[in-house]
Amino acid sequence: MASPAEPIVRLEGVRHVYGPHGGKGVEALRGVSLAFYAGEHVAIIGPNGSGKSTLAKHLNALLLPTEGDVWVKGWNTRDPRHWRDVRSTVGMVFQNPDAQLVATVVEEDVAFGPENLGVPRDELRARVDWALDVVDMQAYRFRPPHLLSGGQKQRVAIAGVIAMRPQVLVLDEATAMLDPLGRRDVLRTVEHLNREAGMTIVAITHFMEEAALADRVVVMHAGQVVLDGPPREVFRQRERLQAWGLDVPHVTELAARLHALDPAFPPDVLSIEELVETACQVWAGQEKAL
Protein backbone atom coordinates (compact mmCIF):
# COMPACT_ATOMS: atom_id res chain seq x y z
CA MET A 1 0.00 0.00 0.00
CA ALA A 2 1.53 3.27 -1.10
CA SER A 3 0.99 6.15 1.32
CA PRO A 4 2.53 9.28 -0.12
CA ALA A 5 2.59 12.27 2.19
CA GLU A 6 -0.26 14.04 0.40
CA PRO A 7 -3.70 12.45 0.88
CA ILE A 8 -5.95 12.23 -2.16
CA VAL A 9 -9.03 13.16 -0.10
CA ARG A 10 -8.90 15.03 3.20
CA LEU A 11 -11.69 16.03 5.57
CA GLU A 12 -11.06 18.63 8.24
CA GLY A 13 -13.48 19.19 11.09
CA VAL A 14 -16.50 18.39 8.94
CA ARG A 15 -19.90 19.01 10.51
CA HIS A 16 -23.07 18.42 8.59
CA VAL A 17 -26.53 19.43 9.72
CA TYR A 18 -29.64 18.35 7.79
CA GLY A 19 -32.78 20.31 8.19
CA PRO A 20 -34.44 23.69 8.09
CA HIS A 21 -32.19 26.69 7.72
CA GLY A 22 -31.97 28.52 11.00
CA GLY A 23 -34.14 25.89 12.71
CA LYS A 24 -33.02 22.91 14.72
CA GLY A 25 -31.72 20.29 12.34
CA VAL A 26 -30.27 16.80 12.62
CA GLU A 27 -26.52 16.80 13.10
CA ALA A 28 -25.30 13.88 10.97
CA LEU A 29 -21.56 14.61 11.16
CA ARG A 30 -20.04 16.12 14.29
CA GLY A 31 -16.52 17.10 13.43
CA VAL A 32 -14.95 14.44 11.21
CA SER A 33 -11.30 14.66 10.23
CA LEU A 34 -9.97 11.92 7.98
CA ALA A 35 -7.45 11.45 5.20
CA PHE A 36 -7.56 8.87 2.40
CA TYR A 37 -4.36 8.07 0.55
CA ALA A 38 -3.82 6.93 -3.04
CA GLY A 39 -4.07 3.15 -3.42
CA GLU A 40 -5.72 2.51 -0.06
CA HIS A 41 -8.66 0.14 0.39
CA VAL A 42 -10.69 1.58 3.26
CA ALA A 43 -13.90 0.13 4.72
CA ILE A 44 -16.28 2.35 6.68
CA ILE A 45 -18.57 0.61 9.15
CA GLY A 46 -21.09 2.01 11.61
CA PRO A 47 -24.66 1.41 12.76
CA ASN A 48 -27.63 2.82 10.81
CA GLY A 49 -27.77 6.57 11.27
CA SER A 50 -24.11 6.95 12.26
CA GLY A 51 -23.36 9.30 9.36
CA LYS A 52 -21.60 6.92 6.93
CA SER A 53 -23.64 7.82 3.86
CA THR A 54 -23.52 11.52 4.69
CA LEU A 55 -19.76 11.19 4.88
CA ALA A 56 -19.61 9.42 1.50
CA LYS A 57 -21.64 12.17 -0.17
CA HIS A 58 -19.10 14.73 1.03
CA LEU A 59 -16.30 12.97 -0.84
CA ASN A 60 -17.44 14.18 -4.25
CA ALA A 61 -19.34 17.35 -3.37
CA LEU A 62 -22.83 15.82 -3.52
CA LEU A 63 -23.10 17.39 -0.07
CA LEU A 64 -21.10 20.32 1.27
CA PRO A 65 -20.04 20.66 4.91
CA THR A 66 -22.07 22.91 7.20
CA GLU A 67 -18.73 23.59 8.88
CA GLY A 68 -15.21 22.44 8.07
CA ASP A 69 -13.67 21.56 4.70
CA VAL A 70 -13.22 18.66 2.30
CA TRP A 71 -10.25 18.69 -0.04
CA VAL A 72 -9.96 16.46 -3.08
CA LYS A 73 -6.45 16.56 -4.56
CA GLY A 74 -6.14 20.04 -3.08
CA TRP A 75 -9.48 21.33 -4.46
CA ASN A 76 -11.90 22.54 -1.81
CA THR A 77 -15.29 20.98 -2.55
CA ARG A 78 -16.96 24.29 -1.68
CA ASP A 79 -15.57 25.82 -4.86
CA PRO A 80 -18.11 25.21 -7.67
CA ARG A 81 -15.40 25.81 -10.29
CA HIS A 82 -13.82 22.51 -9.24
CA TRP A 83 -16.94 20.34 -8.92
CA ARG A 84 -16.28 18.81 -12.32
CA ASP A 85 -12.68 17.97 -11.35
CA VAL A 86 -13.76 16.66 -7.97
CA ARG A 87 -16.44 14.42 -9.48
CA SER A 88 -14.19 13.02 -12.16
CA THR A 89 -11.64 12.20 -9.44
CA VAL A 90 -14.10 10.55 -7.05
CA GLY A 91 -16.72 8.15 -8.48
CA MET A 92 -19.70 6.85 -6.50
CA VAL A 93 -21.66 3.59 -6.60
CA PHE A 94 -24.86 3.41 -4.56
CA GLN A 95 -26.90 0.65 -2.96
CA ASN A 96 -29.68 0.22 -5.48
CA PRO A 97 -28.43 -0.77 -8.94
CA ASP A 98 -31.79 0.01 -10.57
CA ALA A 99 -31.50 3.65 -9.58
CA GLN A 100 -28.15 4.06 -11.33
CA LEU A 101 -28.66 2.61 -14.79
CA VAL A 102 -29.83 5.06 -17.43
CA ALA A 103 -29.53 3.48 -20.88
CA THR A 104 -31.39 0.65 -22.59
CA VAL A 105 -28.26 -1.25 -23.62
CA VAL A 106 -25.37 -2.16 -21.31
CA GLU A 107 -22.57 -0.63 -23.41
CA GLU A 108 -24.47 2.65 -23.81
CA ASP A 109 -24.96 2.79 -20.08
CA VAL A 110 -21.24 2.38 -19.51
CA ALA A 111 -20.48 5.02 -22.16
CA PHE A 112 -22.90 7.56 -20.67
CA GLY A 113 -20.50 9.04 -18.09
CA PRO A 114 -17.33 9.40 -20.19
CA GLU A 115 -19.37 10.64 -23.17
CA ASN A 116 -20.66 13.47 -20.99
CA LEU A 117 -17.09 14.27 -19.99
CA GLY A 118 -16.41 14.84 -23.70
CA VAL A 119 -14.15 11.83 -24.19
CA PRO A 120 -13.37 11.45 -27.95
CA ARG A 121 -14.96 8.54 -29.81
CA ASP A 122 -11.99 6.16 -30.14
CA GLU A 123 -10.94 6.72 -26.57
CA LEU A 124 -14.55 6.21 -25.48
CA ARG A 125 -14.68 2.82 -27.19
CA ALA A 126 -11.42 1.79 -25.53
CA ARG A 127 -12.66 2.86 -22.11
CA VAL A 128 -15.96 1.02 -22.43
CA ASP A 129 -14.06 -2.11 -23.52
CA TRP A 130 -11.69 -1.83 -20.59
CA ALA A 131 -14.45 -1.18 -18.05
CA LEU A 132 -16.57 -4.11 -19.27
CA ASP A 133 -13.49 -6.36 -19.12
CA VAL A 134 -12.70 -5.31 -15.57
CA VAL A 135 -16.20 -6.10 -14.30
CA ASP A 136 -16.37 -9.22 -16.49
CA MET A 137 -19.53 -8.16 -18.32
CA GLN A 138 -18.19 -8.12 -21.90
CA ALA A 139 -20.59 -10.94 -22.86
CA TYR A 140 -23.57 -8.80 -21.90
CA ARG A 141 -22.62 -5.58 -23.68
CA PHE A 142 -25.60 -5.58 -26.06
CA ARG A 143 -28.16 -6.71 -23.46
CA PRO A 144 -30.78 -4.48 -21.87
CA PRO A 145 -29.71 -3.84 -18.24
CA HIS A 146 -33.16 -4.49 -16.76
CA LEU A 147 -32.88 -8.18 -17.65
CA LEU A 148 -29.65 -8.66 -15.67
CA SER A 149 -29.40 -10.00 -12.11
CA GLY A 150 -28.75 -7.58 -9.23
CA GLY A 151 -25.04 -8.40 -9.07
CA GLN A 152 -24.66 -8.00 -12.83
CA LYS A 153 -26.46 -4.65 -12.73
CA GLN A 154 -24.21 -3.47 -9.93
CA ARG A 155 -21.15 -4.48 -11.96
CA VAL A 156 -22.50 -2.48 -14.93
CA ALA A 157 -22.97 0.48 -12.58
CA ILE A 158 -19.35 0.10 -11.46
CA ALA A 159 -18.23 -0.12 -15.10
CA GLY A 160 -20.07 3.13 -15.85
CA VAL A 161 -18.24 4.85 -13.02
CA ILE A 162 -14.74 3.48 -13.70
CA ALA A 163 -15.08 4.32 -17.42
CA MET A 164 -14.73 7.91 -16.24
CA ARG A 165 -11.33 6.87 -14.85
CA PRO A 166 -11.78 8.16 -11.30
CA GLN A 167 -8.84 7.81 -8.91
CA VAL A 168 -11.14 7.07 -6.00
CA LEU A 169 -14.14 4.72 -6.05
CA VAL A 170 -16.68 5.17 -3.25
CA LEU A 171 -19.13 2.30 -2.72
CA ASP A 172 -22.09 3.12 -0.49
CA GLU A 173 -23.41 -0.29 0.60
CA ALA A 174 -23.05 -1.42 -2.97
CA THR A 175 -23.45 -5.10 -2.01
CA ALA A 176 -26.36 -4.72 0.44
CA MET A 177 -29.07 -5.76 -2.01
CA LEU A 178 -27.19 -8.60 -3.68
CA ASP A 179 -27.32 -12.34 -3.15
CA PRO A 180 -24.13 -14.15 -2.02
CA LEU A 181 -22.89 -14.85 -5.56
CA GLY A 182 -23.60 -11.31 -6.72
CA ARG A 183 -21.82 -9.97 -3.65
CA ARG A 184 -18.80 -12.20 -4.23
CA ASP A 185 -18.45 -11.07 -7.86
CA VAL A 186 -18.71 -7.39 -6.95
CA LEU A 187 -16.11 -7.82 -4.17
CA ARG A 188 -13.75 -9.56 -6.59
CA THR A 189 -14.15 -6.70 -9.05
CA VAL A 190 -13.41 -4.12 -6.35
CA GLU A 191 -10.38 -6.09 -5.15
CA HIS A 192 -9.11 -6.24 -8.73
CA LEU A 193 -9.53 -2.48 -9.23
CA ASN A 194 -7.59 -1.84 -6.06
CA ARG A 195 -4.77 -4.34 -6.63
CA GLU A 196 -4.33 -4.18 -10.42
CA ALA A 197 -5.49 -0.69 -11.34
CA GLY A 198 -4.29 0.95 -8.11
CA MET A 199 -7.67 2.58 -7.59
CA THR A 200 -8.35 3.98 -4.12
CA ILE A 201 -11.40 2.26 -2.63
CA VAL A 202 -13.69 3.64 0.08
CA ALA A 203 -16.38 1.04 0.81
CA ILE A 204 -19.25 1.54 3.23
CA THR A 205 -20.67 -1.77 4.42
CA HIS A 206 -22.77 -3.55 7.04
CA PHE A 207 -20.93 -6.82 6.41
CA MET A 208 -18.06 -7.23 8.85
CA GLU A 209 -16.59 -10.02 6.69
CA GLU A 210 -16.32 -7.50 3.87
CA ALA A 211 -14.63 -4.90 6.07
CA ALA A 212 -12.05 -7.50 7.10
CA LEU A 213 -10.82 -7.58 3.48
CA ALA A 214 -9.79 -3.90 3.53
CA ASP A 215 -6.38 -2.44 4.47
CA ARG A 216 -8.00 -0.08 6.91
CA VAL A 217 -11.31 0.10 8.77
CA VAL A 218 -12.91 3.36 9.89
CA VAL A 219 -15.68 3.01 12.49
CA MET A 220 -18.36 5.70 12.69
CA HIS A 221 -20.72 6.22 15.60
CA ALA A 222 -23.09 9.13 16.22
CA GLY A 223 -21.50 11.29 13.54
CA GLN A 224 -17.91 10.79 14.65
CA VAL A 225 -14.97 8.59 13.81
CA VAL A 226 -14.49 6.40 16.88
CA LEU A 227 -11.92 3.90 15.59
CA ASP A 228 -9.53 3.93 12.63
CA GLY A 229 -6.91 1.29 11.94
CA PRO A 230 -6.04 -2.02 10.25
CA PRO A 231 -8.89 -4.57 10.47
CA ARG A 232 -6.93 -6.76 12.85
CA GLU A 233 -6.64 -3.93 15.37
CA VAL A 234 -10.19 -2.68 14.92
CA PHE A 235 -11.77 -6.13 15.27
CA ARG A 236 -9.82 -6.72 18.48
CA GLN A 237 -12.23 -4.22 20.08
CA ARG A 238 -15.10 -6.69 20.17
CA GLU A 239 -16.87 -5.30 23.27
CA ARG A 240 -16.73 -1.71 22.06
CA LEU A 241 -17.97 -2.64 18.58
CA GLN A 242 -20.87 -4.60 20.01
CA ALA A 243 -21.77 -1.73 22.33
CA TRP A 244 -22.04 0.49 19.22
CA GLY A 245 -24.42 -2.00 17.61
CA LEU A 246 -21.72 -3.48 15.38
CA ASP A 247 -20.00 -6.83 15.43
CA VAL A 248 -16.85 -8.66 14.43
CA PRO A 249 -16.63 -11.26 11.63
CA HIS A 250 -17.96 -14.66 12.77
CA VAL A 251 -14.54 -16.24 12.35
CA THR A 252 -13.00 -13.55 14.58
CA GLU A 253 -15.66 -14.19 17.20
CA LEU A 254 -14.87 -17.89 17.02
CA ALA A 255 -11.14 -17.28 17.52
CA ALA A 256 -11.75 -14.85 20.38
CA ARG A 257 -13.86 -17.45 22.17
CA LEU A 258 -11.18 -20.12 21.66
CA HIS A 259 -8.61 -17.67 22.96
CA ALA A 260 -10.69 -17.26 26.13
CA LEU A 261 -10.51 -21.03 26.66
CA ASP A 262 -6.81 -21.26 25.87
CA PRO A 263 -4.57 -18.18 25.55
CA ALA A 264 -2.33 -20.16 23.16
CA PHE A 265 -5.01 -19.65 20.51
CA PRO A 266 -4.53 -16.16 18.98
CA PRO A 267 -7.66 -13.98 19.22
CA ASP A 268 -7.27 -11.84 16.13
CA VAL A 269 -8.04 -14.16 13.23
CA LEU A 270 -9.75 -12.50 10.24
CA SER A 271 -10.44 -15.25 7.70
CA ILE A 272 -11.19 -18.95 7.45
CA GLU A 273 -7.75 -19.53 5.90
CA GLU A 274 -6.10 -17.93 8.93
CA LEU A 275 -8.28 -19.94 11.28
CA VAL A 276 -7.26 -23.21 9.63
CA GLU A 277 -3.60 -22.24 9.67
CA THR A 278 -3.77 -21.20 13.33
CA ALA A 279 -5.62 -24.33 14.41
CA CYS A 280 -3.09 -26.51 12.61
CA GLN A 281 -0.22 -24.72 14.38
CA VAL A 282 -1.85 -25.13 17.79
CA TRP A 283 -2.52 -28.76 16.95
CA ALA A 284 1.07 -29.37 15.82
CA GLY A 285 2.32 -27.67 18.98
CA GLN A 286 0.34 -30.06 21.11
CA GLU A 287 1.53 -33.12 19.24
CA LYS A 288 5.09 -32.02 19.98
CA ALA A 289 4.29 -31.43 23.63
CA LEU A 290 2.98 -34.99 23.87
Binding site: P180, L181, R184, E209, P249, H250, V251, E253, L254, R257, L258, L261, I272, E273, L275, V276, A279, C280, W283
Partner: peptide
Amino acid sequence: QPPAVTAAVHALAEAGLGVRRDCLTVDEAV
Protein backbone atom coordinates in the same frame (compact mmCIF):
# COMPACT_ATOMS: atom_id res chain seq x y z
CA GLN B 1 -23.03 -19.95 0.72
CA PRO B 2 -22.89 -21.85 4.02
CA PRO B 3 -22.86 -19.72 7.18
CA ALA B 4 -19.33 -18.54 8.04
CA VAL B 5 -19.15 -20.83 11.07
CA THR B 6 -20.16 -23.91 9.07
CA ALA B 7 -17.66 -22.99 6.34
CA ALA B 8 -14.97 -22.69 9.01
CA VAL B 9 -15.55 -26.16 10.49
CA HIS B 10 -15.72 -27.69 7.00
CA ALA B 11 -12.33 -26.12 6.22
CA LEU B 12 -10.88 -27.40 9.51
CA ALA B 13 -12.19 -30.89 8.83
CA GLU B 14 -10.67 -30.79 5.33
CA ALA B 15 -7.34 -29.83 6.93
CA GLY B 16 -7.51 -33.02 8.97
CA LEU B 17 -8.82 -31.76 12.28
CA GLY B 18 -11.36 -34.18 13.76
CA VAL B 19 -14.33 -31.80 14.03
CA ARG B 20 -17.97 -32.33 13.17
CA ARG B 21 -18.97 -30.55 10.00
CA ASP B 22 -22.50 -29.64 10.96
CA CYS B 23 -21.89 -26.90 13.53
CA LEU B 24 -24.35 -24.06 12.99
CA THR B 25 -23.54 -21.56 15.71
CA VAL B 26 -20.39 -20.04 17.16
CA ASP B 27 -21.12 -21.84 20.47
CA GLU B 28 -21.17 -25.24 18.81
CA ALA B 29 -18.06 -24.57 16.75
CA VAL B 30 -16.12 -23.29 19.77
